[in-house]
């Protein structure tokens, strides 16, 4: 790896980080705020591509990385399927706070 490329990557990472932190001060509504993860995902991609040189090892390296991501996606997607579609009926007699007490 050439020093220039490394330096450039480092600078870009810090640049994206600056944009990410800066954007967090914008008046973004609550539902849209998880979009602030997008710059982070870009940074993760840069670290994998340049620092970890994912393109250089044997092919199976890309396969393993893809498997990790695919299974993470399964966990997050199917794992949040039920909570995001569940209807919680409030129980009037409950005294302590419950998920039903603070509906989103």
């Amino acid at each position: 790896m050439s020093p220039r490329r490394l330096l450039l990557t480092w600078g870009l990472l810090l640049g994206v980080l600056a944009i990410e932190v800066g954007a967090s001060f914008l008046p973004i509504g609550r539902p849209a705020r998880p979009l602030l993860l997008l710059p982070a995902l870009l940074m993760v991609g840069m670290v994998a591509a340049i620092f970890m040189q994912i393109g250089r090892g044997p092919t199976v390296v890309r396969l393993f990385a893809a498997a990790g991501l695919l299974w993470l996606l399964i966990l997050l997607a199917l794992g949040s399927l039920d909570p995001l579609t569940r209807i919680v009926y409030p129980v009037p007699a409950m005294e302590r706070a419950t998920p039903a007490a603070n509906p989103p």
């Binding site: 199917l78 399927l81 039920d82 579609t85 569940r86 209807i87």
Partner: peptide, 22 residues
Amino acid sequence: SFLVWGHHMFVAGTSLFSALVF
């Protein structure tokens, strides 16, 4: 096998939609 776990929770109070999918 990773896509079916919800069938252990049909009567646990999960959403009907997710129960159908699982």
